[in-house]
Structures are given as C-alpha cells and as structure tokens.
Design a binder for these strands. Structure first.
Lengths: 197, 197, 197, 197
DNA sequence: AATGAATGAGGGTTCATTCAT
DNA sequence: CATGAATGAACCCTCATTCAT
C-alpha cells in the first residue's frame, strides 16, 4: 500500500514492493504467487479492514439512526480508515477498477452494502421527522459521493483539508436534510472547536 | 483518453493509443515525442477544455452568485465536461498525480482556481443573506469534494447515478446552507421532473 | 533448430535463439509471440517439410511397392530430412512430447500416417509374393522403429554411422521379409559400393 | 526418473523431484549437492542397472551366440529394463546428451560395449554358418538402432506396441541374416502365441 | 540430520522508443 | 511526413541453491 501510494499504481513494481517490505523479490512472489494476486489481496485487505471498522462502529453506536450515521462519518474520516496512504490506495483501485472486473466487483459490492445501510438509516430518520417526501436514495448516494470526494481530495492534496473539517462537512451535509437531528451535532462540534481553539 | 478510460492508466500502451486513433505508432511518437508528454498533454487538454467550458458558463450566468454557482453545477455535471470517458480519465490522473509532480501541480492549480471562485461566490451569498458566520471556506471545499465524488462514482459505476440527479444533489447541498437562494431552484427542478414524468 | 541441436531442449533460451539468428530478443518475441509458440512452429515446420519430402518421393516412385518403400528409405535417410541438426531436433521433440499434448499429437499423427503407408505397401508386397501370412503390421512398426533408431544414433553419435550404411540396413531389413524383392536392391547397392570403393 | 518421464527433462525441477520422492527440497540438495549431479547420478544408475541386467542374462545364456543374442533381446525388451518410465528417461538423456559431454561420454561407452558384444556374437554366428561375407558391423549397429527405435516408440506411444511384439521384431530382424539360427526361434515364438491365443 | 523459508540470478515477455525505408 | 520493423531496458516470475532453525 505504501508503494502504491508513493509511486502510483502504474509505477508500482514488485521490486519496489519487495524493497519497501525489506524482502527479496523471490519471497514476495512465493507468498503472493503473482503481482496481480498481491494487488487483489491488497484490495481485499483494505475492504475487509474497512468493513470491520465500520461494523464495529455501527455496533457501538446502537440503534439510533443519527448516532449510526455519525458513526459512519467518524469511521470514514477517522484515523484508522482515512490515512493519506489508504485514501491514495483506494483512489488508485477505483481508477484501475475500470477494465479489471475483479476489482470492479469488489468495489461495487462494498459500495452497495454501504449504500443500503445509509439509505436505511436515512429512511428511518425521514420517517421519524415526518419528512417522508425526501429522496433518501439520492441523499444516500450523494453522501457516498461526498465521502469519496473528500477521500480523493485528501489523497491528492492532504494540505487542503483536515479530517475534522471533513467530518464537519459531512454533518453539515446531513443537517441540510435533517436540521432537527444534525443541527445539534453541528453546534456541539462548533463549540468543541471554540473551546479547543 | 478513450484508451485510458477503457484499459486504465497502468495498462495504457502507446500501441493501444495508436491503434485507437487509427495511426501508426511511429507517427504518434513523432508528434508527442514521449509517452509521458502525450499523457501530460492529455491532462492539459482536459484541464483547458474544462476551464473554458466553465468560463463560458460563468460569463453567460452573469454576476448573480446563485446563477453562477448553478452554472458551475451545470458545467461540472453537464454533457460536455462529465462524460463517462472524461470522468474516468480525471480519476486516473488524480490517482496517478501522487508521485508525478507535474500532474499534481496542474491538478492543484485547477482546484485552487475553482476553489477561489466558489469561495468568492459563497461569500457574496453569505453576505447578501446576512449569514456571514458561515464557514464558506469549508462549504466551498466540500462542494468541490462532492463534485469530485460524483465524478468518481459516475466513473466507477455509471449505472448508480445519472447526471441530473447528481446536479440535484449539488443544489440540495447548497440549499442546506442557503435555503432562501437554492430552495426555489430545487423546487423548480422538482416541478420540472413532475412535468416531465 | 540449430540452437536446440547445439544446447539441447532444456537449455534452449530465447537469447540463444535470437543471437543465433542475428536478431534481437524483442523481434523474435514479436514474431513468435511466445517461446512455446516458436517451439511448436519449429516442430510443425519440421513435420511439414518431412511430409512434403516424403510425398514428393512417393509421387516420383510411382505405384510399385518396392520402389515406394525404397523411396521412403531414401527420403528418411536422405540428405534433406536426415541432417545431424534435424535428427537431433526430432529426438528432442520426441523426448519432450511426453507431457506436452500438442507435441504428442502432432508426432503421433505423423507416425500414424507413415505407419499406414508402410503397412499398405508391405501388404501389397506380401500379397504379390504369395506370403500373406506375414505380420505386415509388425513389420511396418519395426521398420518405423528402425528408422527412428537410426536417427537417434545419428543424432547422438554422428561418427558411428553414415547415411548410406543406414539405408543399406533398411534394405537388408526388408530383404529379410521380402528376399525376392529387396535382394536385388541390396546386391545392386553392394556392387555400387564396390565400384565406388 | 518418474519426474523426468512425466514432465520431460526441460520441466523437471528440484521441487517436483523432492515432492515425488516425499522429501524436503533441502535434503535432496544435501544428498545430491547439485541438480546436475542428481541428473548425472540418475543416468549412471540407469546405465549400471542396465549393464548388470545384461551381464546377468548373458552369463545365464552361456556361450551359444544365438542364446546370447536372444538373451540380449530378452533383456533389452524385458520387464526390468524396458518400462515406460525408463525408456522415457533414456530418451530424455539421449536427447540432452548433445551439448552435455558427460552424458554423451557415458551413453557412448555403453553403446560401444553393447556394440562390441553384438558384433562379436554375430561374427561367431556368421563364421559358424559359413557366411563370413556378412557385414556384421552394420548388422550389429542396425540391431542397436532397432532396439533404440523400439524404445523410442514405446516411450512416445506405449499403445502402439507391446514388448512381446518388439522382441519378435528383433528376432525377425536376425532371422533375415541368420535364417537357420533364428528361424526356429521365430517359429517357436509363433507357436507359443498360437497356444496362448 | 532435516526442514522450508529465503535469496538472487536468469529466464520469458512487454513496450517505449528509434530509424531505415 | 509516415511507416512499422527493430531494439533493449525493465518488467514479472521461476527455480537452483543456501542457511538459520
């Protein structure tokens, strides 16, 4: 992952990877069989890790949709899932997933799962707030896009942004649709900043 | 661009490009001197085209910040700037821009210009609405992220989304911060859909 | 073929082949796509060449079975089909054909065709001579084995043998079963030797 | 030997050999020092085994040249020396012996010994039969070739042939030169077949 | 004595680049 | 200008060999 993040996908060679890992090329190939296999297992590892981070966060958040959505935000932009390296690697795989069916499938499955969860949570939120008219499908997809975009921006220009402001942006995004629920969260975060600053 | 979109950056070869363009390999190299140069000129072309599309749209929109922001949305997600091929190519360059300073610089300049424009427009909007307390900096960066993310999602899964819904999502995003200004736009779009449907 | 004959199959590298042909490795791979393909095409070339040599000889020999069999001997051990290089290459392919179905198939087809022809000719000879009791099937297979063995010996030790004596051995072999037909041929060859020596 | 027979010489790896023998790769290298050494010792083993089989058969056959030659036939095509595996390995070594002086030397020595014995026996037979005019040198070399060819054919296509018919072919070969001596052998074998069938 | 993880040289192959035509 | 055959560096991968355990 470090090698992909540093050199880019196209310039990632087995020699780079082996040297970065402090291993010989022979043994890397012995374990991973193939460069393609190594790359795919990297993607799998990334997806698995992300999946379990998210699951753990959701379990901890409990049944409340606001808490759950906030947990997703905290996970997506937390220090474990959203490092400069990892976001760069995700970006690389997204870019390369066109024309590589295996990558595409895995990415899409993850995105679909994510989308279903967000849609479900937003749906419950809309029902509770009496705003069933909202297009939760689009809200969810756009939230996904927002997070993806934040990752892209963090990957391409880590200076432009910090993770806390990114989280704030996500909360502000939800506050636009669910002011009653996410307004307080926003305010609390703002006060936190004021106290911290 | 078609070749990058189809095969991915890492698997794009001069032979592919030449064949796709109906040219001999020799002449492609004669004109572009180098693969690296061809790729860079591709990025420049993409950036120039996008820049002029945006400029034209802004000129046409006039001085009103709402109209200008909406023009940006229309451009970013319009049929000229946001084709499946182009979004895929942007994605590829973003991914590869780490570790390639020339790409990085060009991408960053474009993003900075864009960011300045959005920030300016949002600032005027905030002033006009009497909501100077808004963090226009973050609003602008997040809008950028949202558009980037929508491009990513359109590039990786064209089915998940259509451009009209993406535009709607952008307007909804702004409506969260500037309800008075973007609310009517949203409503109009919604009515348009109703009439059309 | 020269490289296989010189270094053996196992030590034949593309670098050897390219250097022996006075070409770069790149262009060899460009033309043959694959080492495996190059080897297979070599076998095909060898088989085609042998097939057409044999066919031409048989056409020239006419319908007489003795003349035809003698033409086969002349071809198999003639200067075109039976060079040190070619016999070595045949030997290499025979050895490697176990475990390489494609080689095996081609070799077997050629052998089967050959066997059918020899069996047919011997059958006509046996009928003509009133010795229908002969096991022409085995006679033909053994003749095939004899020729193969002569090739092997010529390949492994070119000094041990010359082609003329090998031909003589083949005629002597047939003379054992068809003395009336092949006896004169033997005698003529012997006289030829006497005159020549 | 099993590995060479199955995969061919070129594709025989130390890993294959070790696995087939149920040993670790380390210990195989420890005992044989080198792949080259292992291969050479394999050839030596094969040659030694063949040599002692032949010697034992000749000892048992006694001084009669016909019995001795028949013993050679029985050995060469008997169940101990002529298994599918062994004939395949011989073929592999013959093929590879070009360009490997050590193999070549060993193969040639064996062939020379064999040739001397056959020549001697045929010479005694010719003298006894009053046919000193025969070219025993060529008869012997051709017999060797015949046996080699039978091995090749058995190695490349075990179905085409069985060992009994191969033996018969050898006897028929000798019967062509020494009808008085090998005719009865042939007849006996034929009767044996009849009784058996 | 025995293992198997580890090494690294060398193989086949790809592909950006050059150049005679 | 244009071609495409030709080059060679660099890639991925295999595998004989070594060595700590």
């Amino acid at each position: 992952m470090r090698t992909i993040a540093r050199h880019g996908f196209a310039r990632t060679t087995m020699a780079h990877v082996a040297k970065a890992a402090g291993l010989s090329q022979g043994i890397v190939n012995f374990y991973f069989k193939t460069k393609e296999a190594l790359l795919y297992e990297t993607l799998e590892h990334l997806a698995d890790e992300y999946g379990s981070l998210l699951q753990r966060a959701l379990d901890k958040a409990g049944p409340d949709p606001v808490a759950a959505l906030d947990a997703m935000i905290e996970t997506d932009l937390g220090p474990d899932a959203c490092t400069p390296t990892k976001s760069a690697v995700w970006l690389a795989f997204w870019a390369e997933s066109r024309g590589r069916p295996k990558y595409r499938q895995l990415c899409r499955e993850l995105a679909e799962t994510y989308h279903r969860q967000v849609t479900g949570l937003c749906g419950r939120l809309a029902k509770r707030g009496g705003t069933e008219g909202l297009d939760v499908e689009t809200i969810a997809r756009s939230f996904n896009a927002l997070v993806d975009g934040l990752w892209v921006d963090l990957a391409t220009d880590p200076q432009s942004f910090d993770r806390e402001r990114a989280k704030h942006a996500c909360r502000a995004y939800f506050a636009g649709f669910f002011p009653a629920e996410f307004g307080p969260l926003l305010a609390r975060a703002r006060d936190g900043h004021r106290r911290a600053g």
